[in-house]
Design a protein around this nucleic acid. Structure first.
Lengths: 224, 224
DNA sequence: CTCAATTTTAACGTATACATTAATGTATAC
DNA sequence: GTATACATTAATGTATACGTTAAAATTGAG
C-alpha cells in the first residue's frame, strides 16, 4: 500500500499505450498524429490525450507541434552521443556509490546473476537474451543506489534511445569485451574499490558509446 | 526565429508564476492549494492550471495529491544528497567534455569572468554576488557543452535545491577553497587536461555536498 | 500558368459542464 | 460516549463547447 492505487485513468492509459507503441517502433520516428485522431482511436476525449502527450513530450519521446499534433522524435547519432555521455556520467555515479556504500548480499546476487546471464547468452549466441541481461545489469546498477532521481533520469534516457539500441544490437560487433568489463566492474564494486569500478565503467561506456555513434554515422542512419 | 514564438499561453503563465513563487519561497514547503483556488487566483480556468501543475510535478517541485490539489515538495537532507550526487556526476561530464573538445575564446571568457567575479565578491564580502557568480560558473560549465539534455536535467536539479542553497549560503563557512578549486578546474579545462579537471571538480563537489548535507542535518532542518 | 490576397477550414487552447468518488458530516444503535 | 452506516459535499477526471488563429483552399491579377 505504499503507492497510490493506480486507478484506471484515461490519461494514464493513453500515456502507457502511446509510449509502448513508440518504444516498439509501431509509431515510427517522425510519425505525426493529431490530438483528435488519437482521441477517437482510443475512444476518449482530447483532454486525457493532451495530458498524455505533454508527459511524453517532457520525457523527450515526442514533440508537440501546434497545429500538427504530436510527432515522434527521431533519434540521431548526435542524440545518441548526448545520451551516452550523460548515461556514462550517471552510471559511474551509481557504480561509485555502490562501491562506497557496499552491496548487501541480495544486491550482489542480482548483479552477479545478470553478469552470468550475459556470459551464457553470449555463449549460446542468443543476442536478444544478452541485450536483456545487459540492460538489466545497467538498470540494476542504478536501482541499487536507491537514488530515486537518478533512477528516474536514467530510465528516461534509456527510453529515449531504446529504438536505436534495438537496431544496433545486430549491427555491432559481438560484445565480448563488454562482458569482461562488466564483470570487472562488478568485482571492483564488491571489494569496495570505487575508483577502479568507476574508471573501468567510464572507459567501457565511453568506448561503446563512441562505437555506437560511429556505427550509426557510417550507416547513414540519421533518423531512427 | 529559431524558437517557436512563445505565445502568451495561460498554462505557461501559470507555470512560470507558480514556479517563481516556489523558488522564491513565497509558496513554502508543504503548502497545499486546490486547483480551483489557483485557478481563481490566476483568473483562469482549471484546464491551464492543471497543465502547469503536471509540469511542475514532473520537475519535482510539487506533488499532485488526488483530492488535495498540489503540495509544494519539501527538500530534505536526503534529497540534497541525492541531488548533489547526480550534479557531481553531470558536471564532471561537462568538465571532461569541455576539456576534450576545447573551449573557444568566448567560452573561455565567460568562464573566467565568473571565476574572477567569485574572487572579487568574496574579497568584498558580498555573499549574494558570490552565490550568483558561483551558480553562473556551474551553469556555464554545463551550457558550454551544448548537450541540451544535460542542460535541461541540470537546470531541473538546480531548481529543486534552489531554496536549500539560498538558506545554507549564510550558514556555511566562507567558500574560500571553493574559489581556488574553481580556478584550478578552469585552468585544467583550458589546457585540455580532462582527467585533472574532472577529478578536481569531482572532489570539490563531493566535499561541498557532504558539507551541506551535514550542515542541514546538524541544524535539524528536515524540511526546507 | 504563377503568385499574392482573401476566404475557409480545422486544430488548438481554454472554459465550462458533468459524472465519479473520496472525504466529511450526521444519525442511529449500542 | 463510541462506533458504524448512511447522506452530503466537493475536488477531481473527463467530455464538450467555443473563440482564436494558423494553415489550407480559393480567388483574382498579371
Amino acid at each position: 500500500m505504499t503507492e497510490y492505487d493506480r486507478k484506471k485513468l484515461q490519461s494514464e492509459a493513453a500515456y502507457a499505450l502511446l509510449k509502448r507503441q513508440i518504444l516498439d517502433n509501431q509509431l515510427t520516428a517522425n510519425t505525426q498524429m493529431l490530438e483528435n485522431e488519437i482521441a477517437s482511436q482510443l475512444k476518449m476525449s482530447r483532454t486525457p490525450v493532451r495530458e498524455a502527450l505533454q508527459q511524453l513530450a517532457r520525457e523527450g519521446l515526442i514533440d508537440v507541434i501546434p497545429r500538427h499534433g504530436m510527432r515522434v522524435k527521431p533519434v540521431s547519432p548526435d542524440d545518441m552521443a548526448e545520451i551516452y555521455s550523460i548515461l556514462t556520467g550517471l552510471e559511474c555515479v551509481a557504480v561509485e556509490t555502490l562501491a562506497l556504500n557496499g552491496l548487501d548480499s541480495s544486491g550482489r546476487q542480482v548483479l552477479e546473476h545478470s553478469v552470468d546471464q550475459m556470459d551464457t547468452s553470449l555463449e549460446e549466441n542468443d543476442l536478444d537474451r544478452w541485450a536483456q541481461a545487459d540492460q538489466q545489469f545497467h538498470r540494476q546498477l542504478v536501482s541499487l543506489t536507491g537514488n530515486r532521481r537518478l533512477i528516474s533520469i536514467v530510465n528516461m534516457l534509456w527510453d529515449q534511445c531504446h529504438r536505436a539500441r534495438l537496431l544496433t544490437l545486430r549491427l555491432r560487433p559481438p560484445p565480448l569485451k563488454s562482458n569482461q568489463e562488466h564483470r570487472e566492474v562488478f568485482d571492483a564494486i564488491v571489494r569496495g574499490d570505487a575508483k577502479t569500478a568507476a574508471s573501468i565503467h567510464r572507459e567501457h561506456r565511453h568506448q561503446s558509446g563512441e562505437m555506437l555513434v560511429a556505427l550509426l554515422r557510417e550507416l547513414g542512419l540519421q533518423q531512427l
